[in-house]
Design a protein around this nucleic acid. Structure first.
Ligand code: ZN
Ligand code: ZN
Ligand code: ZN
Ligand code: ZN
Lengths: 137, 137
DNA sequence: ATTGACTCTATAGTTACTATAGACTTTAAA
DNA sequence: TTTAAAGTCTATAGTAACTATAGAGTCAAT
């Protein structure tokens, strides 16, 4: 089964532009083109794109996915690199969760300091922000 | 006390370039320049920049900060807008935390499926990724 | 006067896309 | 067979909040 980019987009749920983008980034290429230069894809391409899409849903970067794909393509290499990459990625996600959790706390405190219907002059939020600044200063 | 951009950067902990960037984005401007066209800042500018920096640490966008600053500059306006913005920002942060928490779980499961020192061919991580893809398919 | 540190503007790069413009191809109907 | 709509092509610009240059000018101290 051979399909054009529009159908690949439909099947995969990726946009046409992002498929072209993945090609530019060397993640996925149409091995053949039509007479009129249209990209043509087969089943293996569909699977490769779904792999990419799933990895993106794990927030892996295109560079990381490129690495995974190339390892996937050379089955005899060692998997330490994959391992380490996932490990680092997990650490990054956990750091970000910690950051956002703290942020959330601060934002909620901020929100709590405003009882609507006031003029900005008396707004608890802006008061708090200005206070936070002068304390840091 | 009048300072040049380098010292403002030191005092605030912002980079020189990002201070210039905030100027381009209309958040902070040096009202005066030296004869040789150097930006000159005073105490009020320092405080404004610290305000910006603190808001950035809350992950507020430059557009949001611009809005806060302009409200801060017109004390008689109502604070509903501020309120609503913070509210939306909190919701966004909470959505992101939820997303990342789910992600973290998936990534940990993935990591658990690899016992190093194997060839990629037998790597649990890649097996899992490929499996996830074919299930979605 | 000269040196070194600082600053200026303008431009390109980062990430993973999205959105155009303008031209060409394919498919289907008239 | 002509024509029109829909799809595709490349190239380029825009997104967010910066960072990093290049090349030129300025300032402070010796
Ligand atoms: Zn990563
Ligand atoms: Zn308020
Ligand atoms: Zn926001
Ligand atoms: Zn492994």
């Amino acid at each position: 089964m051979i399909i054009k980019i529009g159908e690949l987009a439909k099947i995969s749920g990726c946009s046409v532009q992002s498929i072209r983008h993945y090609e530019k980034e060397q993640l996925l290429s149409a091995k053949i083109r039509s007479d009129g230069n249209f990209r043509l894809y087969d089943q293996a391409d569909i699977e490769r794109l779904l792999f990419i899409k799933y990895c993106r849903s794990l927030d892996l970067s295109l560079a990381e996915i490129r690495q995974l794909l190339s390892l996937n393509d050379s089955p005899m290499s060692q998997c330490d690199d994959v391992n380490q990459m996932i490990e680092q990625h997990i650490e990054q996600v956990e750091r970000r969760i910690a950051e956002l959790t703290l942020l959330n706390k601060q934002l909620k405190a901020l929100r709590g300091s405003c009882t609507s219907k006031r003029t900005v002059e008396h707004c608890g939020i802006l008061k708090q922000l200005n206070k936070a600044v002068s304390q840091n200063n």
